[in-house]
Structure formats: structure tokens, C-alpha cells
Amino acid sequence: MSQEVIISTRAAEYRYKQGFALQPITLDLARSEICFIMGANGSGKSTLGRLLAGIYKPCSGSVTIDGEDSRKLSLSACGRKIGYLWQKPDLQLFAPTVWEDMTFLGEFVGGETPKVRQNAEYWLDQMGLLELKVQSVHLLSRGEKQRLALAGVLAAGSRYLILDEPTTGLDEARRGVLADILRLLHSDGIGISVISHDRELAEQLATRRLIIDKGGISDDIRPPR
């Protein structure tokens, strides 16, 4: 597995207007890792995730995504490098049916239609959703919506994934399905960071654990496997 560093932060800081601040964070995230970002509610996990994904730009210090300064990257450029899965998958679903949701962006990203279709089929198959491709998005379960959102993110070409609380609202069986998908993606060479409270999932998957406390990293653990 590649040790290539995809995201690198150097004393990166982020402040909200309301006052909460992420302390200067220095960190390297490699494709070979499944990194769990853990911590109490309000500790700054999601803020760190968005900073790493390039959604938030650092107020000071730097965040480098695939060798480029995140400040100089547009959101679409960040999205092509880092896939970000929001806590609420509905936010990432736009079209009425599963198939349309996977393919409608083709016309906007300038991709060739056959290539977009091939890509969509590949990722729907990987997520176990190919049979549901004519299904209405609104009729999908939460777990299915999440997998569809994940397929959409991966179809954009990301080589690194950040998932924000992906197990919220999932039962044990669906958590198992998600764990299997993450293992599969990781074995395909996709780096993964998971923002989560789920210790059980972390026990199963994590090759690294970052503990966030009061906006800073209080612990960086690499459990022996």
C-alpha cells in the first residue's frame, strides 16, 4: 500500500466568526491509512474534516492537498482530489433517481457520456446499488442513500475519502456493510479518514486514531495490527 501523503497540514488554524477555533494543527495523512478522527461533541472533528477536505480554508498555516495549497484550489478541484461524505447523505443527492444522480453531472463536468456511464455503473456495482438504479432516491433507506452519496463522491475521481459520522442512524447490519465497503476501497488504494464516535468501527478498521480535544489533536495513536 502506498505511503504517499495526500493531505498535509502545517500549523493550520481555523476560526469561526462565532469564536470557536481549531488550534494550529500539523498533520500528514497518507493513502495507506484508515484514520479515525475521534473526540467529544464540539471538539472540532468536523471542522478539521472540512479543513482537510478543502471546504474550509485555513486562517493561518497551510493545508496541502495532493501537493497543492488548498487556498489556491477551487471546491471542484478539491472534490476531484478528496471525496467528502456529509453526515446527512440527502445533502449530496440531487436527481430524482439513483441512475440520474450518478450521471446528471456528466454534462456539467465535461466528461464523455459513455465514460460517465461506465464510471457510474462501476461505482454503483461497488456499492451494491446497481439493482436499484431505476429506484427513486427518496425511497432509499438511509444506508442506501449514504452508499449512493459515496458512489457519487468516488465517481468524481477522488483518491482520498473523508467521511463525517458515517454510522449515524445505521443499524448493525448496515454498519457491517459500510465497514466492508471501506475495507474494499482501502484495498483499492483509496485513503480514508473517518470522523466518528463509533469505537467498534474504529477497532475494526482504524490503522490510526487522532483524538481531538478542544480544537487540537490530543493524541495520535497507531494501534498495532
Binding site: S74, S76, G79, W86, F104, F108, V109, G152, A156, G157
Partner: peptide, 29 residues
């Protein structure tokens, strides 16, 4: 704002889209 961010993260560069395409995209949003 969140939907605009999410759609851009799927690789769409809204600033580079023509007016017609942009309108079609907003329909999806």
C-alpha cells in the same frame, strides 16, 4: 450554501459553466 458546496465537491466548477448550464444546474439544486 451546503448544496452548492456539495455539488462543487462532486467536481463541478460552477464559475466555468455557461449561463444556460448554470441555470440547468440550479434546477437540480
Amino acid at each position: 450554501t451546503n448544496s452548492l458546496t456539495a455539488i462543487q465537491l462532486r467536481g463541478v466548477d460552477i464559475k466555468r459553466l455557461s449561463f444556460n448550464k448554470r441555470m440547468r444546474l440550479y434546477k437540480y439544486l
